[in-house]
Design a protein around this nucleic acid. Structure first.
Lengths: 103, 103
DNA sequence: ATTCTATTGACAATAAGTGTCAAAAATAGT
DNA sequence: ACTATTTTTGACACTTATTGTCAATAGAAT
């Protein structure tokens, strides 16, 4: 399985597109330093930035978003012994909510 | 399935034990106001408080901790469409980590 | 009515997250 | 080796979140 972080993946994609941080950060309208840190996991990525990057790199946003969310989840359960159980409970809740979304 | 929050469950347990907020908050060494808000979901619970409460109420800490963690997870994926996918990815990661924990 | 219990909101203190900038380090091109 | 460009690093200010303290209010019980 992929043990790559979202930041690492984004860097990889950027390098494949041969875009310097400078250009991408200009498109994102954020400082080069911040983007650099985001790619190296020193600063958090936001959902908005992830979506904009998917747009810039013309890649599938879903894959990036799932990775983004899963990293946030992993951060919460870090090295908790009960992490797996908590995940299963959360899954049940999500399914329950989905079944009862009376929109 | 149980749609009860951790705070609600803790209040229920406290009432079953017929303990006033005053006494419990003294044992926890936190302000009554904060505990009141924690039970009603207005303030976040910490892992430490949850464990102390399990001790005070002499109940199984695991069940409370799982609920505690699952709520933190739920908060991260809120109403994300990709929440369920992210949960599955996180589960794989947890299993991967568990299999490779070379302590 | 008085006492015990619980809730609410205002406030300060602290911590966490974010943006900006400039200098230093690394890399690439000539 | 020199210069350009790109990337990294750290310091700083600024904003936002979180947390604790307290007092006033409301509710419940006797």
């Amino acid at each position: 399985m992929s043990t790559e972080t979202l930041g690492e993946k984004l860097r990889q994609i950027r390098e494949q597109n041969e875009l310097p941080l400078r250009k991408v950060s200009a498109l994102l309208d954020i400082d080069v330093a911040i983007l650099s840190k985001m790619e190296r996991g020193e600063r958090k990525l936001s959902k908005e930035v992830v979506l904009k990057l998917a747009d810039i790199y013309k890649c599938n946003p879903e894959e990036l978003l799932v990775l983004f969310l899963s990293e946030k989840i992993m951060y919460e359960i870090q090295d908790e012994d009960l992490g797996e159980k908590a995940l299963k409970v959360a899954e049940k809740k999500v399914k329950y909510l989905k079944a009862n979304k009376t929109k």
